[in-house]
Amino acid sequence: MARLAAFDMDGTLLMPDHRFGEQTLATLRRLYDREITLAFATGRHALEMQRITRSLALDAFLITGNGTRIHSREGDVLYRQDLDPEVADRVLHSKWETSATVHVFNDSGWLTDRVFPEMLEAHMQSGFTYQLADLKRLSAYDVTKICFVGEHDDLCRLRIQLNEALGERAHLCFSAEYCLEVLPLGCNKGAALAVLSASLGYTLQDCMAFGDAMNDREMLESVGYGMIMGNAMPQLRAALPHLPVIGHCRDQAVSHFLTHWLDTPHLPYSPE
């Protein structure tokens, strides 16, 4: 039986409007009552996730920034990793052939140099927002991760440029079709979950995890019970064809699966 359950947020635990469903919240509380440790593993900022967990009274560990930070249930920093300053400097101060917008994350929050109201729709529940800043003047020693947001084909071309420029000095991944992230080398949700589980005296085989995007790959393939959402990126399903696929986030499929797992684990599961 799993002792720790790790959840991606957008496209997984949250519905398409980026809100928790009531069934999902009730199921998370059932897990907690069964003494199963909860962890939210997300690309979102720690400051935002702390607001969300406080507002919903959810007692969970936080893996944020796609593995760049781990916080305890009390809010203490258990692990942190930032981009190599040379990498951050190269990404921020080079000319890239792309129309994507640039978003920088550090401990102070979310920084960008363009007004982008569409990006705020995903953060309505928390009220978390960006700060406008001159990214060219930002210190390269104060960058946790950098995100490019734009059309998927454009981002695929950008990824080739970034790979050629950065080589093995950073980890690149798609956290959504429209979001390409530049992360510290070796930094991902799976690596962070390994750190967290070990600190709690668990192994990764004691963990279950749910996700829908390529930034969830390392986490899903490393745990004892990895589940892919029915609305997942095709690239994720192709990369992990051996993992079970559950339903769509719009139907609160994580809650549906976990209710079956808690109440009728002896019966075969169907996402229908």
Rank of each mutant, 00 (worst) to 15 (best):
L267K: 13
E22L: 13
T98V: 02
D113L: 04
P117I: 04
R34A: 14
L138W: 14
L120Y: 00
M119G: 13
G247E: 08
T98S: 11
P268M: 09
L78E: 01
M9G: 06
C249I: 01
Q205Y: 05
H260Y: 07
A238E: 15
M227A: 05
Y79D: 00
Y79W: 14
R114G: 00
R29E: 04
Y225K: 11
L14P: 03
A41D: 11
P234I: 08
E86R: 15
D153H: 15
L78D: 00
G190S: 09
A176W: 10
M15Y: 05
R114Y: 11
G230P: 10
Y202F: 15
L258G: 04
G211N: 04
T27F: 02
Y202T: 08
G186P: 14
E97I: 09
R217E: 15
T129K: 13
P117V: 05
L240S: 07
G43W: 13
E97A: 15
T98N: 02
H242S: 14
D84P: 10
L243W: 05
M214I: 05
L220H: 04
G67H: 08
K95F: 02
T203M: 08
A122R: 07
T101F: 12
R29Y: 01
F148R: 12
S175A: 09
D17V: 03
Y178G: 02
D263M: 07
E218I: 06
R90N: 00
C156F: 05
F128A: 13
Q23T: 10
F105G: 00
H71W: 07
G43A: 15
L183Y: 01
F40A: 09
T129Q: 13
T98W: 02
E272S: 12
V143L: 09
R250W: 11
A46K: 10
F210N: 08
F128N: 07
K145D: 02
G167E: 04
E164W: 09
L172Q: 08
A192G: 10
A140R: 14
F61E: 12
L13F: 03
I228R: 03
E86P: 01
R157I: 01
F148T: 11
Y225C: 10
L58E: 02
V87T: 10
